[in-house]
Design a protein around this nucleic acid. Sequence first.
DNA 1: ACGAGCGCCTGTCGGC
DNA 2: TGCCGACAGGCGCTCG
Length: 274
Amino acid sequence: MPELPEVETIRLNLIYGTKDYPSILGTIILRAVILWDRSLATPAVDKFPSRVEGQALQSIGRRGKYLVLKLTRDFLLIHLRMSGDILIESEDESISVHHRMILYLDNGYRLAFNDPRKFGRVWLVADAGEILSALGPEPLDESLTSIEFHRRITSHHRQLKPLLLDQSFFAGMGNIYTDEALHLALLHPLLKSDQLTLEESDRLLQSIRQVLNEGIKRSGASIDWVYRGGDFQNYFRVYQRTGKPCYRCGNPIVRIVSVQRGTHFCSHCQPLKE
DNA sequence: ACGAGCGCCTGTCGGC
DNA sequence: TGCCGACAGGCGCTCG
């Protein structure tokens, strides 16, 4: 379940706690277990536990879709990819077969990285920049102006959908929120980015911010068996609504494939050319 | 510079 | 009921 709003929801839950578990801020990692070696990008599996144990969780941040845990000496970075999730469990709960890493904390709870498809990755590094420096700006960062966004987007000659999914262009956009933002902005997903007028690129920027903020407000989207507790899936305008009427004009939502990703849009409201 | 294809993985669902 | 293909919230890689 991981696009920016879902990762942000997890971050807030870890910081403030939920009805099921307390905040983990300030806790100390007593013991670490890696259950699937390839989930750990760095360091080597035999070096990880001794290095992470004893460090405190000083802050919990987010950069794009990365969860950034600042520890006493290192940064623990977690990318959930397609099916990853972070669960806080009490120690008497049974351990899921999909758990890939478990950190036992000194408050009686454990942090579990659960990831059925095994695409997710964990990094333990002294310098977070070596992983995060390639990321583009945060879409919700208001210091990105309309003028600067127009300059950036028209500096590429790329289709909008692949460009928005490119994490070096924007950090945090994924398949759902890209489709939703393009529909809200009335722009065709395959429109070339250097065709956008200032008015259109500004509409796109504001649409991106609107759908991301809606997603965060609704605690993200929960789809299929990857469940999180959010309900933004009930407010999709185009995503997974193939053949259903566009809320704006009534024409059926179309599905095409772009960059191997299902892409949903309204060919009437989002024409490729006028 | 750009886009298409593939690989990495497991699980669900619809059609036959 | 079982089998099979399509599909799934991501991204790194190679190849034209």
